[in-house]
Amino acid sequence: MKTFDVGYIVQMKKGHPCGSNEWEILRVGADIKIRCVKCGRIIMLPRSKFEKNMKKILKISNNTEK
Rank of each mutant, 00 (worst) to 15 (best):
residue 9 I to D: 13
residue 60 I to D: 09
residue 44 M to V: 02
residue 1 M to Y: 07
residue 2 K to S: 11
residue 50 F to D: 10
residue 13 K to L: 12
residue 62 N to F: 00
residue 57 I to N: 08
residue 60 I to R: 15
residue 62 N to K: 11
residue 30 A to G: 09
residue 63 N to V: 02
residue 64 T to S: 12
residue 30 A to T: 08
residue 5 D to R: 15
residue 36 C to V: 00
residue 11 Q to H: 06
residue 26 L to C: 00
residue 53 N to W: 07
residue 64 T to G: 02
residue 56 K to A: 09
residue 55 K to S: 11
residue 58 L to V: 09
residue 13 K to P: 06
residue 32 I to L: 07
residue 22 E to C: 03
residue 33 K to T: 11
residue 23 W to C: 03
residue 27 R to N: 10
residue 27 R to W: 01
residue 48 S to I: 04
residue 16 H to Y: 12
residue 60 I to P: 11
residue 41 R to Y: 05
residue 26 L to R: 06
residue 55 K to C: 01
residue 1 M to W: 04
residue 14 K to A: 13
residue 63 N to C: 04
residue 44 M to W: 00
residue 6 V to I: 15
residue 47 R to D: 08
residue 9 I to Y: 08
residue 52 K to S: 10
residue 1 M to T: 10
residue 50 F to P: 15
residue 23 W to E: 05
residue 58 L to C: 06
residue 37 V to D: 05
residue 60 I to E: 15
residue 4 F to A: 05
residue 8 Y to G: 04
residue 27 R to T: 07
residue 63 N to G: 02
residue 31 D to N: 12
residue 33 K to L: 00
residue 48 S to D: 14
residue 22 E to K: 13
residue 42 I to F: 00
residue 64 T to P: 12
residue 24 E to C: 08
residue 30 A to S: 11
residue 48 S to Y: 05
residue 44 M to A: 09
residue 51 E to C: 11
residue 17 P to W: 07
residue 33 K to R: 07
residue 32 I to Y: 08
residue 20 S to R: 05
residue 34 I to C: 04
residue 53 N to Y: 08
residue 46 P to S: 08
residue 28 V to C: 12
residue 56 K to W: 01
residue 18 C to G: 12
residue 10 V to C: 15
residue 47 R to E: 12
residue 11 Q to D: 09
residue 60 I to V: 14
residue 66 K to V: 01
residue 59 K to P: 03
residue 17 P to C: 03
residue 62 N to C: 01
residue 44 M to R: 09
residue 57 I to W: 05
residue 49 K to W: 03
residue 65 E to D: 13
residue 4 F to I: 08
residue 40 G to H: 07
residue 56 K to D: 11
residue 7 G to V: 04
residue 44 M to G: 07
residue 60 I to T: 13
residue 35 R to D: 02
residue 55 K to Q: 11
residue 50 F to C: 07
residue 66 K to A: 06
residue 23 W to V: 03
residue 58 L to W: 03
residue 21 N to Y: 09
residue 50 F to V: 01
residue 43 I to V: 13
residue 37 V to I: 13
residue 8 Y to F: 15
residue 38 K to I: 00
residue 46 P to V: 02
residue 10 V to L: 13
residue 49 K to Y: 07
residue 51 E to S: 12
residue 58 L to H: 06
residue 39 C to A: 02
residue 20 S to F: 05
residue 63 N to E: 13
residue 28 V to W: 00
residue 23 W to G: 06
residue 56 K to P: 01
residue 29 G to F: 02
residue 23 W to P: 12
residue 39 C to S: 02
residue 38 K to C: 02
residue 64 T to N: 13
residue 39 C to I: 00
residue 34 I to L: 06
residue 47 R to T: 04
residue 21 N to K: 15
residue 33 K to N: 01
residue 50 F to A: 04
residue 38 K to E: 12
residue 17 P to M: 03
residue 61 S to F: 01
residue 21 N to P: 07
residue 65 E to L: 08
residue 48 S to Q: 10
residue 15 G to T: 06
residue 14 K to S: 14
residue 52 K to Y: 09
residue 54 M to E: 08
residue 29 G to T: 01
residue 61 S to M: 01
residue 50 F to W: 05
residue 34 I to S: 06
residue 13 K to N: 14
residue 19 G to P: 12
residue 36 C to R: 01
residue 42 I to T: 14
residue 53 N to C: 05
